[in-house]
Write a protein that binds this DNA or RNA. Structure first.
Length: 302
DNA sequence: AATCGTTCCTGATAGC
DNA sequence: TGCTATCAGGAACGAT
């Protein structure tokens, strides 16, 4: 499930592969995935011939800054936004069209490439680039969203999101400030994108374990020490995962189709009934606000 | 205004 | 073995 580290890994990969490439054509068997403009033909028309100048991340959103080529003065810049949601992931490579067969329409052109991973089969949107490569969105559950914005309007929209936890300017003081006067359980609060960006179900549980904070503890009741530990835990876990290329124990894959390296670092997420790496007590799973939370009942007490 | 429940989806898994 | 029912889960949206 792509969270900040996986989205950053995708962005890093894309910046090596698709910079200065132009969109030639777009294919989809699930046109609803494009939310803006709603009409797919309109989307196709608008994005055709635009060139990718920069790929960046804000929270869990991937943003492609696009430019008409040749640049026309007075013409506003466009930005393509992709949110991978649960099972979406972007892949760059070459596929060949399959005659209608089950639900697999495209197969990797190179049989030995990491694109052959079973989780990379669900291609529902493909951008054809001007270097013969394809930028494909694989999304088993069809939750991802794709939107084409005017750059200036998108920037305004993204301002509604909370601060980036890996930003150099995001210090302990700023962290305490964004949690000030917030109510509710700490896990839910740190997963709220309007409060702090990029943390989802996996890294919320992981960071809380590192900080030894119970996921259901009320955020208003966190001690100074716990706030400090949580701040450093969030930074440490996210930074480590970015370095390792994210997690891949489920659907997520890097743009070349290969797996990220965070899996071996995972301490609690989806480790129910397995031993805590600190104290050997069995990891518990509970529901916090409709979502699974994994924690060590011995290390993390309210 | 803030919080809660529902919705979108289908592969994987558990249960029989 | 094979079928069916249940579940996971980010975030927008509607309801309270």
């Amino acid at each position: 499930m792509p969270e900040l580290p996986e989205v950053q890994t995708t962005v890093n990969g894309l910046n090596k592969k698709v910079l200065n490439r132009a969109f030639i054509d777009v294919w989809s068997d699930w046109k609803k995935i494009v939310k803006k403009p709603k009409d797919f033909e309109q989307f196709k028309k608008e994005i055709k011939n635009l060139k990718i100048k920069k790929v960046w991340r804000r929270a869990k959103n991937i943003v492609f800054d696009l430019q008409a080529e040749p640049a026309l003065s007075g013409v506003e810049g466009y930005s393509l936004l992709i949110h991978q949601k649960m099972t979406g992931h972007l892949l760059v490579g070459k596929w060949v069209r399959q005659p209608e067969k089950e639900n697999i329409r495209w197969l990797p052109a190179d049989k030995k490439s990491p694109l052959n991973d079973p989780y990379n089969r669900f291609l529902h949107l493909i951008f054809f680039l001007d270097d013969k490569n394809m930028l494909a969105l694989s999304d088993a559950r069809k939750f991802a969203k794709v939107e084409l914005w005017k750059t200036e309007e998108l920037k305004k929209e993204l301002e509604k999101i909370g601060p980036e936890p890996l930003d150099k300017k995001f210090g302990l003081i700023k962290f305490k400030e964004v949690l000030k006067n917030k109510k509710g359980k700490v896990k839910q609060v740190i997963m709220d994108q309007s409060i702090i960006a990029g943390i989802g179900n996996i890294y919320a549980s992981e960071a809380l374990w590192v900080a030894k904070v119970h996921p259901e503890k009320n955020v208003a009741n966190l001690s100074e020490k716990e706030l400090r530990l949580l701040y450093f835990a969030i930074r440490r876990v996210l930074e480590l995962s970015v370095k390792l290329g994210g997690e891949s124990f489920s659907d997520y894959r890097k743009p070349d189709g290969s797996k990220g390296g965070f899996d071996t670092e995972r301490k609690v997420y989806k480790r129910e009934n397995q031993k805590c790496h600190r104290c050997e007590v069995k990891i518990k799973r509970i529901k916090v606000g409709q979502r699974s939370a994994f924690f060590c009942p011995s290390c993390q007490k309210i």
